[in-house]
Design a protein around this nucleic acid. Structure first.
Lengths: 146, 146
DNA sequence: CAGAAATCCTATTGACGCGGTATGATATGC
DNA sequence: GCATATCATACCGCGTCAATAGGATTTCTG
């Protein structure tokens, strides 16, 4: 299990916001209710997603979050990299990596590079749009407000 | 960096043993000298590789390890799974996994399944034989014995 | 048979990240 | 001005990682 809850929650959060996009921003409390994620923990994850330019916030009462870009332009790769960091199987094959000192005598480098490429190909090929299309219809928000 | 030193060391250990296969078994001390890995730590990793049926041990003086099977029959996947566990990106897509309770409403499941499949395809398609063919020629063992 | 050389086994340690909680500051709609 | 939000830190318990340590067991060799 190499993707932690941070990345998994981030996907669910982004999908939730995408599904409920509208005039009103989506608040942490709404998402927490629907997704059953600790609100406080979610704040931290959302903060990362904002800084990564994937969400934008509306402060104050009736505030919340919007997608910063349309869901057809946001990939799973962007979301996971923002929250998990680069998904390289080992450090020395990552994008901006300093090559390890054993390269040249490293039998495994080629394999890890292939793994890295395979992972990226998948996560960069799936968009947020695809996630919400595939998924089940919008679950009802518990009408606690009325 | 989702593959820890255990898995990476395991690959180097297996490659080292494969390269130096012969009548005499390969000892921890030899490997430690060539690969610059802590001998004591290596013992633990090797112990796992033995239990996984990838290495077999020869006990006592002049003992050491042999490949349990020819290097054309050992895949990178076998080695990594033995030392790292299943390389599933999340638990719920692993082979014998109990499906998570949110399946059906989980937008990410399909993506993670694809990632999982892509990883397995790579690591199950590369054999120990390939590793030692690709790599640099056998490095000399420091002649400390003479 | 004694001892050296090796594997085997288990316990311990320090550092670090993960998952979450707590507290408070700041901004804003009503 | 107050409730409702986001924003920013600090903190904590826990498990894993990467070793280290110490000793028990097996076996070749002289």
């Amino acid at each position: 299990m190499m993707i932690s809850t941070r990345g998994r929650y981030a996907l669910r959060i982004m999908a939730d916001v995408a599904r409920h996009e509208g005039d009103a921003p989506v608040s942490v409390r709404e998402i927490a209710l629907r997704q059953e994620i600790s609100g406080k923990y979610m704040e931290q994850i959302i903060s990362v997603l904002c800084r990564a330019g994937l969400l934008k916030s509306v402060r104050g009462a009736q505030g919340g979050y919007h997608l910063a870009r349309p869901c057809g332009e946001i990939t799973v790769g962007m979301i996971l990299r923002a929250t998990e960091g680069d998904l390289a199987p080992v450090e020395c094959v990552a994008d901006g990596a300093h090559p390890c000192e054993r390269i040249g005598d490293c039998p495994s480098h080629a394999v890890f590079s292939k793994v890295y490429a395979a992972i990226n190909q998948v996560i960069d090929g799936v968009f947020l749009r695809d996630l919400i299309d595939d998924a089940a219809p919008v679950p009802p928000l518990p009408e606690k407000k009325g």
